[in-house]
Design a protein around this nucleic acid. Structure first.
Lengths: 300, 300
DNA sequence: CGGTAAGTTGAATCTAGTCAAGAAACGTGG
DNA sequence: CCACGTTTCTTGACTAGATTCAACTTACCG
């Protein structure tokens, strides 16, 4: 914890200096097309999306570096392109609570829309790359390609469901259940990205996992050991092998089960129904330029 | 718990019957203007918002009745106009987890946007009224009055921050802290609606509070009793008097404190910055019909 | 007035937190 | 390449806090 803070202190300046100027350090120059972005977010828009000429800058974030700080003025959304982050609340006393571990394809920064300031800090656990989506680009983008608007609503809603599931986990599961849920969630997300579902390396410390799950690091360690000796998983430091995924699901729920309406999201990533309104999009656009997003959602 | 379920069972049919037909039972006939709606959501749009001719139906929901069920097809957003709800996940075994207590001015149903089905069930704790905002109306509304689009993003983001705070509470606070946080939150929300901040009646049972806070009902009862004997609050069944709000805040955090970036939302309702971009709205609208929402957010 | 649902309180149990020591991995510099 | 210090992880013993089980009181509704 003290160690983590020294990390933060060292980086606070970097964060503060560019806090005012919206992400001007795009040394990388590399940029990302709208097509790339929609792929990243697992949203398939068949027609006009590819025509949009907006392009987005990339930003490379080194391990331990903060992308945004809680309280910074909100100016951009970010989509993780590679690597892994943690988003945290930090209080005066220096203790932190991890809210999530955004990975490839995940959105960050949406919590800043309402009050105009980010409410959480995003720190890279890795050398990561994010796509910067400034508000100004977003306005232009939606103008060029209104069908993309639905994407934003979907992504926001998805985020909401994710956090709700988290609240459910914290509210109802014990230590082992939480750790099991965490592993299954990670497994599913990595699987969706094409990596192995059963064998992976954690990018975060026990401390960070514990903070995320509302547990102490020792408890996380114990829970992992218990699952290990039970033969359900194999743990060696940060390397995890899921031996028996069903047993792992059983740990979450000895009898009851994951909430009915939630199960789909829980351990399988959103099965993004390929937008059926695609073929009607052009016509609709001509009739009703704005609000198309909601028309599409209504049609689905 | 068993009692709650029998309640659900009795009402399941009502919910299922109209699940297919999007809210056709508007016997009340009464409808709500866009102006009313923006007031309800604490969003002030000075100019063109009042011109929109879209009107919304009201629906009255009796105590114990479900407004939507988890898994129902998503077709409308709802804004609470009076009364109080609980939103719950229910699993196979019948146990439920309360996710929130939406009250006057709060949005419900946003969790259905992404996957097209509501992920939680909303049950009225009271005879309540909600404004029905069907997707189809939403499309028309945004067409008539694009400046209202920002409202939706704000409301979604607000919801996100709320649930994140909840996750923080569950992850870091003990029983008394959670109950204290719950009371302060309720106090602030009621205060924002013009009711007394220090004296109110709970609409929910200990069981429901416990489910919301990840505690058992006995623990909630004990925590309330402890705060009572400490002289911080006065409890008599469901009537609460907050004697010493500062002490209550102290319970949440004996030393550390609420996370820096979060404190504002936590016990004071969003201080909705009256949109400064209002005066530019008309011009912007003429130039860029769609995407205006994001331009406004960028300007703020 | 009686029955039921909701709330309070106590005692025993169990889970997770705390304190503390030791082992394993990592990075750095000799 | 190895020795060193640091960080991370594991494990054990003990404590604090929440759950469970249970009895009892209080409100509410017909």
């Amino acid at each position: 914890m003290t160690a983590a803070m020294s990390h933060f202190d060292a980086l606070d300046f970097v964060g503060s200096i560019d806090a005012g100027a919206p992400d001007l350090q795009e040394h990388e120059g590399a940029n990302v097309s709208v097509r790339d972005l929609t792929r990243l977010l697992h949203i398939e828009y068949p027609d006009d999306a590819w025509l949009a000429r907006t392009a987005f800058a990339l930003r490379r974030v080194r391990e331990g570096e903060a992308l945004v700080h809680a309280g910074d003025k909100f100016h951009s959304l970010y989509v993780v392109r590679s690597g892994c982050f943690k988003t945290v609340y930090t209080d005066f006393s220096g203790s932190e609570q991890v809210l999530g571990f955004p990975m490839c394809g995940d959105l960050m920064g949406a919590d800043g829309i309402d009050c105009g300031h980010y409410s959480s800090t995003a720190v890279s656990l890795d050398t990561s790359e994010v796509v910067i989506v400034p508000l100004t680009s977003l306005a232009r983008l939606v103008y060029e390609c209104p069908s993309l608007e639905a994407m934003l609503y979907r992504v926001l809603s998805r985020e909401l469901v994710r956090v709700q599931n988290m609240a459910w986990t914290l509210g109802t599961l014990g230590a082992e259940g939480r750790v099991a849920a965490f592993l299954l969630n990670l497994s599913a997300r990595l699987g969706a990205l094409g990596y192995s579902r059963s064998s992976f390396n954690l990018r975060m410390t026990r401390q960070e996992i514990g903070s995320y799950l509302g547990l102490k690091l020792e408890t996380v360690s114990r829970a992992l050991s218990a699952l290990n000796t039970a033969g359900i998983i194999q743990v060696h430091q940060r390397s995890i092998d899921i031996v028996d995924a069903d047993a792992l699901r059983g740990v979450i729920d000895p009898a009851a089960g994951v909430p009915a309406g939630v199960a789909p999201q829980f351990d399988s990533p959103p099965a993004h129904s390929d937008v059926s309104a695609g073929k009607h999009a052009k016509k609709a656009r001509a009739q009703f330029p704005p609000g198309l997003a909601w028309r599409q959602l209504a049609a689905a």
